[in-house]
Every structure is written in structure tokens, then in C-alpha cells.
Nucleic acid binder design. Structure first.
Length: 268
DNA sequence: CAGATATGACAAC
DNA sequence: TTGTCCTATCTGG
């Protein structure tokens, strides 16, 4: 489930399992054989996450960059590692643990200029303490593009994906199609704060839950009335089902290449 | 067992 | 806006 919370969680996990340890790296599938050879035998000094981008910093300066894309997945476990099954792009081993990576959109070693370029094209990440949300607002406020597209644009906000954006817009009472230009500074502040709360909770619990684990901030003026059988999200993939707050049928429509979901009553 | 689907991003038109 | 790529999992026949 690779939105930003997953990546930050993985960074912490990998630091815990392999940080400060020398790793053996391989590419059972073969597609990252050269890169794995360059990492192998080095110490994993630290890990980091920027939006949906995961970094491993190895002794000697090598930086591994992984982007899971839509299908990428990590799995890990205690040694001994099982025989690799399926398309394992990268396998890391320490004496105590193994880690497999399958299906990433990116798995590559970056030199310093490439790393700088990557970080330079990312907007503020709600999960990072150094994030500057004003930068995102500046881009949003001068755009005619729909909020959904703007909030999913990683150069505007980093780490948000379809679920967080869909749910944050529901919680803000704004339709996905609202032009960025119409967003007032206070509304942006509320959305940003909400994304910070939602995504931090996601890092903690390891899944996206915008209903049960996280209450709507009072500043938004609306308390959720959640059916005890209610799901963990308000509107994402709930087309045709009753809104958890007002029971109006949730609507869906293609917004660009992605499905938008909204409650026509709660989101105006 | 084919086909559809998935929390993403990019290039090409 | 459309097509393409990465892989696993779920659906229906």
C-alpha cells in the first residue's frame, strides 16, 4: 500500500533491521545485479524517506533509491532467508535478517547530483519535520487545476496518494474538482494539518484509516457519525454506498487517469 | 487460467 | 488524454 506513510514506515523498519550493519546484496531476478554488487559488503549507514521515495545510504557514499510505484513490495523476516520466489529485484541479507524487494518502479543507485535533482522536484512532505507547506499553497493558489490533481502532484505535496487525497478532501468538505485557485489560506492550513495527522497515524498503525483511528479535527466543524460497521475510509472506493456522515450515495467519476470519489452533500 | 485490477509516474501525442 | 512499465492477487468462467 505504497503512499508516503508506507515508505516512512519502511525507512524505519530497514534502519531497525539493517542500520549499522554490513549487508550482502543480490538481485535474484537479475535486473539489479550490478547495483546489488556495488552495495554488497557495505554498511547500511542510514535510511530516509521523502514522500514516496525511499533511500538507503551506504558507507562509501552509495545511495540506493527505491520507488515502489503501484505494485512494489518489500518483505522481510528473520534469517535464514527462504529461496527467492517470483521476481525478486533486490535481496538484502544480514546475519539476522533478510529483505526482498519485488516490482518496484525504481530501484537504482544515485550519485549526488541525481539525488539533489530528485529531492528538488518534491513538494513538502507532511511526514517530514522540515516541510514548508507555504510552498505548496503558492502553487495551488495560482492554479486552475482540480485540487485532486494538485494534491496528488508530488512536486506540490510529496507522499500523498489517491486515498489520502480523496479522504482529506472529504474531511475538508471540498470536491475533488474544486480549482486550486479557489482554496483560501485557512482551508489550505486545515487540509495540511489534517494530512499531517492522517499520515502520521498511517505510519503508526501501518494502514490508511481515516475514520476509526483519527477523529475529524474540531476546527473542521463536523463530527463524524460513523456506523459501527463503517469502513476505515469515508469515500475512497465506496461508490454507490451511503456516506458515513450523511448517508447520501457516494459518487465516483474519472478525474484524469484516476477515480475520484466524493459525497455530493458533504463536499460542496 | 485468462482477464481485471491495484495506494504511481512517466513519455508521447 | 493515452499508452506503457513494474508484479501479485483477486475475479469469473
Amino acid at each position: 500500500m505504497p503512499e508516503g506513510h508506507t515508505i516512512h514506515r519502511l525507512a524505519a523498519r530497514h534502519r531497525e533491521l539493517f542500520g549499522g550493519r554490513v549487508v550482502a546484496a543480490s538481485s535474484p531476478q537479475g535486473r539489479f545485479a550490478e547495483g546489488a554488487a556495488r552495495i554488497s559488503g557495505r554498511e547500511l549507514v542510514d535510511t530516509d524517506a521523502y514522500g514516496k521515495h525511499l533511500l538507503h545510504r551506504y558507507a562509501g557514499g552509495a545511495v540506493l533509491h527505491v520507488h515502489l510505484g503501484l505494485y512494489g513490495k518489500f518483505s522481510d523476516g528473520p534469517a535464514p532467508a527462504p529461496l527467492p520466489v517470483g521476481e525478486v529485484r533486490l535481496r538484502l541479507l544480514s546475519p539476522a535478517n533478510w529483505l526482498d524487494l519485488r516490482g518496484p518502479a525504481a530501484c537504482e543507485l544515485l550519485d549526488p547530483p541525481e539525488l539533489d535533482a530528485l529531492l528538488a522536484r518534491l513538494g513538502p512532505d507532511p511526514l517530514r519535520a522540515d516541510a514548508k507547506p507555504e510552498r505548496a499553497y503558492a502553487a495551488i493558489a495560482r492554479s486552475e487545476r482540480p485540487l485532486m490533481a494538485l494534491l496528488m502532484d508530488q512536486s506540490i505535496v510529496a507522499g500523498t496518494g489517491l486515498i489520502y487525497v480523496t479522504e482529506a478532501l472529504f474531511r475538508a468538505g471540498l470536491r475533488p474538482t474544486t480549482p486550486g485557485r479557489r482554496l483560501r489560506p485557512k482551508q489550505w492550513a486545515a487540509i495540511w494539518d489534517d494530512l499531517c495527522v492522517l499520515m502520521r497515524s498511517g505510519v503508526e498503525v501501518g494502514r490508511i484509516d481515516t475514520v476509526r483511528s483519527v477523529h475529524l479535527p474540531e476546527a473542521m466543524g463536523r463530527a463524524p457519525r460513523v456506523d459501527r460497521h463503517g469502513g476505515e475510509v469515508y469515500v475512497y472506493r465506496r461508490a454507490g454506498q451511503p456516506c458515513l456522515v450523511c448517508a447520501t450515495k457516494v459518487r465516483t467519476a474519472l478525474q484524469g487517469a484516476r477515480n475520484a470519489y466524493w459525497c455530493p452533500t458533504c463536499q460542496r
